[in-house]
Amino acid sequence: MKKKGLYQIKDPDKKVKEYTLSVLTEDKAGLLNSITIILNRRKINIDSLNVSTTEVKGVSRFTIVVSSTKEKIIKVVNHINKLIDVLGAFLYEEDEIYYQEIALYKLSTKIFLKGDLVEKIIIRKYGAKILKIEKDHTIIQKTGTKAGTQKLYDELKKFGEILEFARSGRVALSKKKRKTINFLRTLEKTKSNKLNI
């Protein structure tokens, strides 16, 4: 794990693919703007974005999903790494991370009166759960990939109108064995704050 590692382009791949950026930052106001400005400059649209605190106090994690060519996204990551308050920006393809999204579905409660929908579809097949049952509506929650939550959406739609639907941004962790605090310690120890001549 190398601080603000330089991503170098080995063979430029012109194919547009989905990439996940995981950016560890100091918890500072305005950083979201700084990061999106860099994506915007190269006309990269954000598919999903999530910002949250991490297990280390004062450190935030941005998880950004974008579609781009590898060549372009590497340049973007190098630029994000340059931001003063960014601790480290990492670029992942789908098979390099564990990731999940969460979806909430609001349905009319009367749909559930039509037989064994709940048991068969929601609980067993999709691993979803019922979050809340009210008189006029019920909330179902499912975590998974975008494709998985979409599948459940399509399935539920067959039974009646979905009143409201919301999907979160992706959260992701790398498959590598890594500890944020160790990464920060390495950063703090690096003697790259001064010229060594």
């Binding site: 003063i84 601790l87 704050n193 060594n196």
Partner: peptide, 13 residues
Amino acid sequence: CDKIRSYHPYPII
């Protein structure tokens, strides 16, 4: 100031 942990202006050669 001579150090910011998130800023590494002189990369190690």
